[in-house]
Amino acid sequence: MLWALVLAGCASQQPQVSPQPPSVTTDIHAPRTETGNTAGPVPQSATVDRLRQVFERYQGVPYQYGGTTPKGFDCSGFIRQAFAEGLDRHLPRTTRQMLTEGRSVPQDQLRVGDLVFFNIRGREQHAGIYMGGDRFIHASTSVGVTESSLNGLYWRGRFTQARRFD
């Protein structure tokens, strides 16, 4: 029980001031293409690479409520940083705001870069970035920026939805 509390997700929302692992619809083995400054979505293989590079740069950075810098991130702060650095996209600041934007995606249609949301203590207050398979990257209160399994003991019953920010 103590371990579950330690793993509890971030509360990046401003404080008033058992699904199965998803099917993967990404083609992470597709040939690389030059994206340059052309319009259109980033190919999935490039998305994986870019997000993985950002993750590796920040892996282990401690969790900090309201954190938005490499000194400490909360879950939405890390997501926002990863999207800005890796994908040149700007997302809303809080989990609550992220839940109102993007478009809903069924769990069996997840693609790399989709945001996954979790119910912690009765509210959708934790989020991460889907990386393919059943993996997602996020800022955990217990270990900081890390990678976890959607089907892991703590997370599998807490998944609530996914959103795509094209």
Rank of each mutant, 00 (worst) to 15 (best):
G152E: 05
R50P: 01
P62T: 09
I79W: 01
N119E: 12
L7I: 00
I129K: 02
M1W: 06
S45N: 12
H90P: 00
P43Q: 04
R96M: 07
Q16R: 08
R80W: 02
G67H: 02
T95V: 11
Q16E: 13
L110Q: 08
I137V: 15
G66N: 03
N119W: 04
A30N: 07
F165W: 15
D74R: 06
V42E: 02
L87Q: 14
I79A: 08
M98R: 01
A46S: 08
G36D: 07
S45F: 03
R57W: 02
L91R: 10
G9S: 04
A4H: 14
I79F: 08
P31Y: 06
G132K: 05
F165M: 14
A30G: 12
V145W: 02
P31I: 12
R123I: 09
E124K: 05
F78Q: 00
G157K: 06
G86P: 12
S104P: 13
Y154F: 14
N119D: 13
L51W: 10
H90W: 12
L91T: 05
T69P: 10
Q64I: 10
N119H: 12
G67W: 03
L153I: 08
Q13G: 14
R156K: 14
Y65E: 06
A39H: 09
V24E: 12
G152W: 07
D49Y: 13
G133Q: 13
R121H: 08
R52C: 00
G72I: 01
R123T: 11
R89N: 10
A39C: 04
R121E: 13
Q97L: 14
V61H: 00
F73A: 02
F159E: 01
S104F: 12
T25P: 03
E56R: 11
A46G: 03
D134W: 02
Q81F: 01
V105K: 08
P15E: 05
T25D: 09
C10P: 01
T26F: 09
D49N: 05
G102A: 04
T38P: 00
G132H: 06
P22G: 05
R111L: 15
F73Y: 11
D27I: 03
V48P: 01
M1H: 10
Q109I: 04
H126M: 05
R52D: 03
R50A: 09
T26K: 01
F83V: 07
T146P: 00
K71H: 09
R156E: 09
T94P: 13
I28D: 10
T38G: 10
D114I: 03
R156I: 11
L2W: 06
L110Y: 09
V6F: 12
Q53Y: 04
E147K: 07
V145T: 04
N151C: 01
P70E: 03
H138V: 00
G113K: 04
S104R: 11
T47P: 03
Q14R: 13
L51G: 00
H126I: 05
Q161I: 05
Y154M: 06
L99E: 13
T35K: 14
I120Y: 03
Q14C: 09
Q64K: 14
R80Y: 01
R164N: 07
P21V: 10
L110N: 09
Q20G: 10
G132F: 06
H29I: 02
T69D: 06
S23C: 07
Q14S: 12
G157W: 11
T100G: 10
G102V: 07
L51A: 02
S23Q: 13
I120G: 03
